[in-house]
Amino acid sequence: MQKSNLNIINLSDLSADWHWLRDEFKHLPNKWAHYTSLNTKLPKHLPKRQSIARFMTATQAVLDAKKQPSLLVSHGPRPAYYGARMAQHLHPQLPHLAYSFNFTDLPTGFQHKAMAKAYQQIDRFVVYSSLEKKLYADYFGIALERIDMLHWSVHAPTVPHDEPPIEQGDYICALGSQGRDYETLFAAMRTLRHIRLVVVATADSVQHLSVPENVTIRTHIPLAHAHNILTHSRLMVVPLRDSQVPCGHVTIASGMFFNKAMIVTNSEGVHDYIQDQKTGVFFNPKEANDLAEKIQQLWDDPIQINRLAATGYAFALEHCTEKNVVRYFADYLSHLQHL
C-alpha cells in the first residue's frame, strides 16, 4: 500500500464536522474523508430509519474505498458492523480498524450471529477496558490478538473555574446514563439528607425511579452546563449497574481532568482507570449502605478529596490524552503500510 495514496475513510454516527485525528496527521500525505449516518436524508417516520441510514452510509464509504488504496476506520460497534458487511460484499480486503468498540448491552439472537460474522472482516479493534478484550473475543469469536485496549482519550478539557455555578451551594454530582444504577445511588441519598446530589443524565435513565428530596435531576442540558455542574461539585459518584459492565470510562476520564475525587462501583470494566483509594474509591455493586458510608467519609475528609483528585488528574494526563491515540494510530498506519 502506497503511503502517498492512502485514503483514510471514517465511518460514524457523529457530526459531519468531526474528523477524528485528521488535524494531527496533516504532516502526512494521506487523504481524509468522513461518512456519517447523520447526513442521510430519510423520512423521520420511516421504520428502522437509523439502520437504513447506516447501511446507505457504509455502502457509500466502501464504494469510495474501492477507488484507491484506503483504510476504513469505523467508530462504534454498529458503524463497524455495517462497514464490515458492506466490505465483505464489495471490498473484502479493505483494511478496517474498528475504533471505540463498546457495547452497553450485548446483541442477542440473529443480530448477534450477523455481527459475529461481519466482524471477521475487521483486522483490528480498539476497546476501552481490559474486560472488553476477553468479553468481545469470546462473544463474537474474535482472535484476542486483534483487539487492542486503549484508555478513553480526549483533548484535555478547559475547566470553567471562573464561571458562576449553575447550582448554588455545596453538593455532590453524578453524570452519565449508560449502564448506570441510579436506584442504588438514590437509596444511599435517602440516608444522607444533609448532602445534596445533582444528577446529569437522560430522562430515560431515571424516569422509573422515585427521586429523593435532596436530589436534583438535570436532563438534556448542554455539555458546557454539565461541565459547570461537575466543576463546582465537591465530588462525583459513578454508580454502575453491576460488577461487569463496560461503561463509565468517559465520565471517569472527565472527572479526572476536572480534578474530582470519585466514588465508583467496583466493576471490572473500570479497573483500568480506578485504583481503590488512589485514583478513586470503590463501593460494592448494589449496596446502598456501603455507598452512603463512602460518600459520608469523603464528604468529611477534604484532605482525602484533594489527594484522590490530584492522583486522578495525574493519571488522566498520562493515560487519557489524545496523544496516546495519535501514537497508536501512527503505529497502526506504519504497520499497515509495510504489509
Rank of each mutant, 00 (worst) to 15 (best):
T202S: 15
Y81K: 03
A314S: 12
I166G: 09
E167H: 08
L90N: 08
N5L: 10
S243E: 15
V73Q: 01
N289W: 07
G141N: 09
E145C: 00
A226N: 02
V159I: 14
H227D: 15
Y136V: 03
A253N: 03
D290S: 13
F103H: 14
S129N: 11
Y273V: 01
Y332L: 04
A137M: 05
D181K: 07
Q93L: 11
H194M: 08
L97K: 02
L144P: 00
T158G: 01
V154T: 12
A330L: 05
I122R: 01
L235K: 03
H75S: 08
E268N: 15
S12D: 12
H91F: 15
V250S: 11
H335Y: 01
Q2C: 06
R124Q: 14
K66C: 09
F110P: 02
D148P: 00
P77K: 04
H220P: 00
W20D: 03
L197D: 05
K41F: 09
S51D: 14
K260P: 06
S37F: 06
S15A: 13
H75P: 08
K134G: 02
E322Y: 02
T219E: 08
T279P: 02
C173P: 03
L28A: 13
P285H: 10
I8L: 10
S254L: 14
S70C: 12
V270C: 01
L42K: 10
L333P: 06
A80P: 03
N5I: 04
R22V: 03
R307N: 12
G176I: 05
I195T: 09
Y171F: 13
N324A: 05
V264I: 13
L11N: 06
I195P: 05
P302C: 07
Y99C: 02
L308W: 10
S74D: 10
L131K: 09
A84S: 15
L291G: 09
L336C: 09
T36S: 15
P92A: 12
P222A: 07
V238S: 06
Q244S: 13
T231L: 08
A16S: 15
S129Y: 02
M86E: 13
A65C: 12
Y182D: 05
E213C: 04
R218G: 01
